[in-house]
Design a protein around this nucleic acid. Structure first.
Lengths: 111, 111
DNA sequence: GCTTAATATGAAGAAGTTTGCAAGTAATGT
DNA sequence: ACATTACTTGCAAACTTCTTCATATTAAGC
């Protein structure tokens, strides 16, 4: 296994490690969106959105096409959707067990 | 969908966004390892490894058990393995198409 | 050609992460 | 008890990422 693979993987995950970028990918995995449409859905400054889109473009997770006045973005890798779903299920598992633990620690049945 | 979910997802991915942490998870998803065993596999200072393990512990992705003199780590969420595999396949897709592109741009068949 | 809407880029400060070092705790062998 | 091996923690310096503001680019409508 080539040495810098871990590096590449880490970078890939770091790309996903931002709330705005996650939302962008979720919106785009439903359907293509123009930038101003994304801007309506996501609570973020215009230039910031543009920066986050640039990050996703750099890692080739999305591609953009000019369509008249608008720039339309789409996910270039459909499997990203599965990855987001997998992450969601892992996360909810973790949150659920954390919740149980907390409930146990907080409950008056013991302590 | 609760508002801070994107936040939680982003944090989750950020946890995976470090080469050492990826390697740790890959090693642990093969089998449990004591810290000094991980240390042999991963090129990193001992205290740094410990910090990265702490990060993974905080997010509940791994758990540790003292076993005599050693501390043994294990993945607490088996699905992490699938996630890493999914990421690998997406990544290699991206890298492959980037490679093609580069080959095209570099090749003397055009330009 | 000028204005406007849509998007991108650059730069600077704030915030967050990583790393290495020194010091701390814990169990084990002698 | 003391040295040793195995690990963790605290902290400051170096580095990376985020956010915002101002400024550029690009196409469309008048």
């Amino acid at each position: 296994m080539s040495v810098p693979l871990y590096q590449a993987k880490a970078e890939f995950f770091r790309t996903l490690g931002h709330p705005a970028r996650i939302r962008i990918l979720e919106l785009l995995s439903e359907r293509d969106h123009a930038v101003h449409e994304l801007l309506e859905e996501i609570e973020i400054e215009q230039s910031n959105l543009s920066q986050q889109l640039a990050v996703l473009r750099r890692t080739s997770l999305v591609v953009s096409h000019r369509h008249g006045g608008e720039v339309v973005y789409s996910v270039s890798v459909p499997e990203v959707r599965d990855l987001l779903l997998a992450a969601r299920s892992i996360l909810s598992g973790i949150i659920a067990s954390r919740g149980e633990l907390e409930a146990e620690l907080t409950s008056s049945t013991r302590r």
